[in-house]
Simulated assay, not measured.
Amino acid sequence: MMEPVHDAAAEARLLISCLDLTNLNDTCAEADVDRLIERAETPDGPVAAICIWPRFVAHARPRLPLGIRLATVVNFPHGGEDVEATCREAEQAAADGADEIDLVVSYPTFLRHEGGGPDFVRLQVQRVKEAAGGRTLKAILETGEMRDPALIAAAGEAALAGGADFLKTSTGKTATSATLDTARILLETVRRTGWAAGVKPSGGIKSFEDAAAYHRLANEVMGPDWAGPETFRLGASGVLDDLLAVAGAGPRELPTAGY
């Protein structure tokens, strides 16, 4: 049973510190990245990271305040099989100044190859992490496309074996993004395997209540106070205003759109 939360404002501030503030819209431009950076330093403390397209990493690096990490995506969003191309993406992103790499594992390959799929995912993660110079790597499993809990757990185990630092639910680009059920599977996979790794729900998180539910679930599964910026991230953009409102920095209007 999850512990009741008595101080919503304090929880909202903690959730802000765990937020990967994201703009992966197809229409994103440098001006949008600049606005994202401005939003990342909030009246209630900085977010954990911004997450942007690789083509904007070099632009964002000198503009991003110290203490906020710079994340980007590779093999995004479709999870292709070309490991060499993905490695080149990761290498360039690292050279441009990325701190973290969110890799879409080749979930179509994993699903198609059945027994051989986990080995492909493990090696893909390992190769991409090496190409990125060992930077923090979040393996996006696209759990909404897998559906079967056993498959999700197997993909997570393979990614952890390859060196993933986080298991991430989804790209936010498919019909089903993060759910509490799939987040629980990823958390239980990390706990069961014993790897020192975190979990990142992403996509569809639009309110304080959404974000808090994942935070409380993480602490339920992993233990009290486990969920902090080093182990727990939220991939979202539209939720920030609501978190700030609950933290006391502004009026509350339930977000209706966003990643």
Rank of each mutant, 00 (worst) to 15 (best):
L15H: 00
L111F: 01
A196W: 01
G258E: 10
E209Q: 14
A178G: 02
P54R: 11
A98N: 00
A90C: 07
D99Q: 12
L186P: 01
D210M: 06
G238P: 08
A95Y: 02
E209F: 13
H59S: 07
E188V: 14
V121T: 11
R13Y: 00
G67N: 12
Q92I: 14
A8S: 14
A93R: 05
G97L: 06
F76S: 04
V47S: 10
D44C: 14
P201L: 02
G117L: 04
V221C: 04
T136R: 12
T22H: 04
G248A: 09
P118L: 09
A213I: 03
P4E: 10
V74A: 03
C87N: 01
A196D: 10
T27A: 12
T27P: 03
P43R: 11
A197P: 08
I101K: 07
L243V: 04
G204P: 01
W226N: 07
L64F: 13
N219K: 06
L103S: 03
F120K: 03
H215L: 15
P108N: 00
Q124T: 10
D165S: 10
Y107Q: 07
W226E: 06
T27Q: 09
D7W: 09
L137S: 02
Q92H: 02
V83M: 07
A159M: 04
V239H: 13
L141I: 14
E130R: 15
G45R: 11
D26C: 03
A164V: 09
E84I: 07
E130L: 13
L14C: 08
R252P: 01
L111S: 03
A212C: 15
A139Q: 04
A132D: 01
E220S: 11
D96I: 04
F166Y: 14
S207E: 06
T193A: 06
A245P: 12
G235V: 04
E188C: 08
L243G: 06
R69H: 09
A196M: 00
G228K: 10
A249V: 03
E142K: 07
G204R: 02
L186D: 03
T171F: 04
P43K: 13
T22C: 01
F208S: 06
A218S: 14
A31F: 02
D32I: 13
G223C: 13
A227I: 10
S17M: 00
A236K: 10
A212N: 11
A257W: 07
A95D: 04
V221I: 15
T136I: 14
Y259R: 13
C18H: 04
G194D: 10
G172T: 09
D20V: 00
A58F: 06
A153I: 09
S106F: 05
L160W: 01
T22Y: 06
D20S: 11
A10F: 01
A12M: 14
G116H: 08
V199L: 02
A155E: 05
H78P: 00
S177Q: 12
L244C: 09
A10L: 12
V83W: 02
R135W: 02
E230Q: 15
P65M: 03
Y107W: 14
A154M: 10
A236N: 08
H113L: 14
G194A: 13
M222Q: 02
T182H: 08
P46R: 15
G235R: 12
E38W: 08
E11P: 00
N25Y: 06
V128D: 06
L254R: 15
G223P: 05
A132H: 05
E188W: 04
W226K: 06
G117R: 01
W226S: 09
V199M: 04
K168V: 01
G79H: 05
